[in-house]
Amino acid sequence: MSIKRIHVGPRMSGIVINGSNVHLSGMTAARREGRSVAEQTGDILKRIDELLADAGTSKEHLVQVNIWLSDITTFDEMNSVWDKWVIPGHTPAGATVEARLALPDIKVEIQVLAALPS
């Protein structure tokens, strides 16, 4: 099975395609102090759309999502944006947990796995 890497960096690749699986690295929003969870979530989802397109797929083919929140009480705020973005009937398996993220101004991190269209 071949492995293809896109947006390769020194520490990680933005996208790794393994067979028909498209793995995205965990995405965070551009760092700007004082941004809400909803704003950060919207920025992340826009970037996920772009990366999935770079890989030749789309959110219609989501398989799994992992979401980390720095404060689980913002779960509903994050979901207010997520629910508008995800395609009904194409929702992935998923989990959302509270975690201390890399920097204090990062409130949301999202990682997805998608499939390549057949």
Rank of each mutant, 00 (worst) to 15 (best):
I3L: 13
I3K: 04
R5S: 13
H7D: 15
V8K: 08
G9E: 05
P10C: 01
P10I: 00
R11G: 01
R11P: 00
R11Q: 07
S13E: 10
G14R: 14
G14H: 05
G14N: 10
I17T: 12
N18Y: 10
N21A: 06
V22E: 09
H23A: 03
A29V: 03
A29I: 05
R31C: 05
R31M: 14
R32L: 07
R32Y: 05
E33W: 06
G34C: 05
R35Q: 15
S36I: 13
V37D: 10
A38I: 05
Q40K: 07
G42Q: 13
D43E: 13
D43M: 15
D43K: 03
I44W: 05
K46V: 12
D49P: 08
E50I: 15
L51W: 12
L52R: 00
L52K: 02
A55I: 12
A55F: 13
G56I: 09
G56P: 00
K59A: 14
E60I: 15
H61D: 06
L62C: 00
L62V: 01
V63Y: 08
Q64S: 15
N66I: 15
I67V: 15
L69E: 11
D71R: 14
T73K: 14
T73V: 14
F75R: 15
D76P: 08
E77N: 08
M78E: 09
V81F: 06
W82D: 13
D83E: 13
K84D: 13
I87R: 06
I87W: 08
H90T: 04
P92Q: 11
P92K: 06
P92G: 03
P92C: 10
A93Y: 12
A93I: 14
G94A: 02
G94Y: 07
A95Q: 11
V97S: 12
V97W: 03
E98Y: 01
E98D: 07
A99C: 06
A99G: 02
A99D: 07
L101E: 02
L101Q: 03
A102T: 12
L103D: 06
L103N: 04
P104T: 01
D105C: 08
D105Q: 03
I106W: 07
I106V: 13
V108F: 14
Q111W: 00
V112G: 07
V112N: 11
V112W: 11
L113W: 14
A114M: 08
L116Q: 11
S118I: 11
